[in-house]
Lab assay of single mutants.
Amino acid sequence: GIDPFTGEAIAKFNFNGDTQVEMSFRKGERITLLRQVDENWYEGRIPGTSRQGIFPITYVDVIKRPL
C-alpha cells in the first residue's frame, strides 16, 4: 500500500551513484522519498522496482516532502 509518510519527487537530472548505498536514476523518473538523511541527501526508492538508496537533494524536484 501507500505509506502516508513518504514523499515524492521527480528526477531533474541523471544521477549515477558511486557506491552501493547510492541509487542511480534517470531524468524524469518518479521517486518515492523515504526520509531526508541530512541537508544534502534523501533516501528513496523507485516504485515498482527493487532500487533503493540515497541521492543528492539537488538532483530532484520535490513534489511532497517525506514526514
Score class of each variant (00 low, 15 high):
Asn40Tyr: 15
Arg65Ser: 14
Ala9Tyr: 05
Phe55Met: 02
Ala9Val: 06
Phe55Glu: 00
Asn40Cys: 15
Phe55Pro: 01
Leu33Glu: 04
Ile2Trp: 13
Phe5Gly: 13
Glu39Ile: 10
Thr58Arg: 11
Tyr42Asp: 00
Trp41Phe: 09
Asp38Phe: 08
Pro66Lys: 04
Ile10Arg: 06
Ile2His: 13
Gln52Leu: 07
Val21Cys: 15
Arg45Ser: 11
Leu33Gly: 04
Tyr59Cys: 12
Met23Gln: 01
Leu34Phe: 06
Pro56Leu: 07
Tyr59Asp: 03
Gln20His: 12
Arg51Pro: 00
Phe5Pro: 10
Phe13Ile: 09
Val60Thr: 03
Ile31Leu: 06
Arg26Asp: 08
Gly48Trp: 06
Met23Asn: 01
Pro66Leu: 07
Arg51Met: 04
Glu8His: 10
Arg26His: 11
Glu39Val: 10
Gln52Tyr: 10
Gly7Ser: 09
Val37His: 07
Arg45Gly: 05
Pro4Thr: 13
Glu8Arg: 08
Gln52Ala: 09
Thr32Lys: 08
Ile57Asn: 06
Gly1Leu: 11
Gln52Arg: 12
Leu34Ile: 12
Asp3Ile: 12
Asp38Tyr: 09
Arg26Asn: 09
Asn16Val: 13
Glu22Ala: 08
Gln20Cys: 15
Glu43Val: 08
Ile57Trp: 05
Asn16Gln: 12
Val60Phe: 02
Thr58Ile: 14
Glu8Ile: 14
Asn16Tyr: 14
Arg30Ala: 07
Pro4Gln: 14
Gln20Pro: 14
Arg30Gly: 04
Glu39Tyr: 09
Arg26Val: 14
Lys12Trp: 04
Gly53Thr: 01
Arg45Ala: 10
Gly44Lys: 00
Thr6Phe: 13
Arg65Gln: 15
Leu34Gln: 05
Ala11Glu: 00
Ser24Gln: 05
Leu33Ile: 11
Glu22Ser: 08
Tyr42His: 03
Ile46Tyr: 01
Val62Asp: 02
Thr6Tyr: 14
Asn40Lys: 11
Phe55Ile: 09
Gly44Asn: 00
Pro56Gly: 02
Met23Lys: 00
Gln20Asp: 14
Gln52Thr: 09
Ile2Asn: 15
Gly7Thr: 10
Glu29Ile: 03
Val37Asn: 02
Lys27Trp: 05
Glu29Trp: 04
Lys27His: 08
Arg65Ala: 15
Arg30Thr: 10
Thr6Val: 12
Phe13Pro: 00
Gly48Ile: 02
Pro56Thr: 02
Asp18Ser: 14
Leu67Phe: 06
Pro47Arg: 09
Glu8Trp: 15
Asp18Lys: 14
Thr49Tyr: 03
Pro56Gln: 03
Arg65Cys: 15
Val21Leu: 13
Glu29Gln: 06
Ser50Met: 12
Lys27Ala: 13
Arg30Ile: 12
Thr49Arg: 03
Ile46Thr: 01
Leu33Tyr: 03
Glu29Cys: 03
Ile2Arg: 12
Val62Gly: 03
Lys12Gly: 03
Asp61Lys: 14
Thr32Pro: 00
Phe25Glu: 00
Trp41Asn: 07
Gly1Ser: 12
Gly48Asn: 10
Trp41Ile: 06
Ile54Cys: 09
Ile54Gly: 01
Trp41Leu: 07
Arg45Tyr: 13
Gly17Tyr: 02
Gly1Pro: 13
Glu43His: 09
Phe13His: 10
Phe13Cys: 15
Lys64Asp: 09
Arg51Gly: 02
Leu33Ala: 03
Asp61Met: 12
Ile54Lys: 07
Arg65Lys: 15
Gly7Asn: 09
Asn40Ser: 11
Val37Trp: 08
Arg65His: 15
Pro47Met: 10
Gln36Trp: 07
Leu67Ile: 15
Gly1Asp: 13
Pro66Asp: 08
Ile54Ser: 03
Val62Cys: 05
Thr19Gln: 10
Arg35Ala: 08
Gly7Glu: 08
Val62Trp: 06
Gly44Thr: 01
Asp61Tyr: 15
Thr32Trp: 08
Phe5Asn: 12
Ile57Met: 10
Asp61Pro: 00
Gly28Phe: 05
Thr49Gly: 06
Phe15Glu: 00
Gln36Ile: 09
Gly1Lys: 08
Val60Leu: 05
Gly48Val: 02
Lys64Asn: 08
Val60Pro: 00
Phe5Lys: 11
Gly17Lys: 04
